[in-house]
Write a protein that binds this DNA or RNA. Structure first.
Lengths: 220, 220
DNA sequence: CTGTGTATGTTGCATTTACAACATATCAAA
DNA sequence: TTTGATATGTTGTAAATGCAACATACACAG
């Protein structure tokens, strides 16, 4: 029994697969565990990556460095999270970003070809793994498209309306709670917090919506 | 022999699969062809979609309608293109966008479960189809992430630097051609064309880069 | 209750951007 | 070559944004 089971269970890659079965799948996938010290590279920008990563402990940062050497943290992931799944499935020559251990971390790497190719013994769980992997990447895709649609609007007001409209649609009601505070929402939409706050006030004055903290209601 | 073979060959879903084999796969996938008149729905926002679409002839628009009913074309696809692949693989309850035939079109719909589940006769091509589907969605994912990274920058200059930097990195040289004209680049980055043109001029004056039409060179 | 930290709202101002209008350059067809 | 269509560059002005600073509200630990 792998000592990492409780963490692996949280990983969406294994969704719908029983504890006992996770244990059976791992050797079939040739899953291997690696340790990384703080600030060491898991992958670097020039690497070809054919493995998805699952964080068993610690956390990692995805870093982008531009032509002039300016660095930027694109995202982060922690225990139970999957990472590098898009890079490995895309089979690109270089991933163009770096993956750094943000602290001392244990990471399980699984070759994604092993996931795709059903093994000779016709392991029943491959189909589920494939469906999970597809679902994870496809879902991320939808969220990214949604975000781009909202960020593509030219004004603060239009970005807010696009975002709030999508949130209302998601729950099927005109009243809803958002999962962001003001600063987080501003960062998500890549706009200024104070300008956003003012704009929200103006929109309320014009009767477009009402809000209190993270609760919003849109007016038809 | 399917009459659609020449179009299907262009579809990335069938990349790496021989003509004769495409013909064998189709019945195995229960692929079905539908016709749509101009401005009729292929899918509507409230649908659950479990099929990927392949355009055999004509073209489609992906449309988003917000809370107040304002419509927006998010993307379009034409003969040989795949669409709805993210929605079907994500297994979401509703796709939240509409797919409309932009003209009289023929569309082949394939249940994505059929693609994922290797058939009983152990059809050799399923593995390739799965790999293709994953690769297509993962690649799109990477492009979307890249675009978001660039759009997230706050100023016109920073957006341009992020974009140009990524293009230079892609070819591994500081001189490169971009696939956009000025208007298209401005739309891609969600900024104003004339402001972008001025900013490019200023950046050239400051010695950051040189350019002529769609050829750029970055200066270290 | 009080104090402290954090989240949110508000305002003024400097900077940046969008927009419109026009100038120039490029390219293809007549 | 001329003409028209399209792409790109330039400029001025109005509007929007980012920023800093401060005010207010709220949550929570002591």
């Amino acid at each position: 029994m792998t000592p990492y089971l409780s963490t692996l269970k949280k990983c969406p890659l294994f969704a719908g697969i029983d504890d006992t079965d996770i244990d059976k799948i791992l050797p079939c996938l040739s899953a291997t565990v690696f340790q990384y010290e703080k600030n060491t590279f898991v992958f670097s920008a020039d690497d070809s990556v054919f493995t998805v990563g699952i964080i068993l402990s610690g956390s990692i940062h995805i870093i982008k460095e531009d032509f002039w050497g300016r660095k930027d943290i694109l995202s982060q992931a922690e225990a139970g999270d999957l990472f590098a799944e898009s890079f490995s499935c895309a089979q690109s020559e270089r991933i163009a970003v770096s993956v750094l251990a943000a602290e001392r971390s244990e990471v399980m790497l699984v070759n994604c070809r092993k996931i795709i190719k059903t093994c000779s013994s016709a392991c029943l769980f491959h189909a589920q793994l494939i469906a999970n992997l597809l679902q994870i990447i496809a879902n991320k895709n939808i969220l990214l498209m949604q975000k781009i649609e909202q960020m593509s609007k030219r004004t603060t007001r239009e970005k807010l309306l696009a975002y709030l409209s999508a949130e209302a649609e998601k729950v099927g009601r005109s009243a809803f709670d958002i999962p962001f505070n003001r600063q987080e929402l501003a960062d998500y939409l890549a706009i200024d917090r104070s300008a956003m706050s003012s704009e929200l006030g103006r929109m309320r004055d014009e009767g477009l919506l009402t809000f209190e903290r993270n609760h919003f209601e849109l007016m038809a």
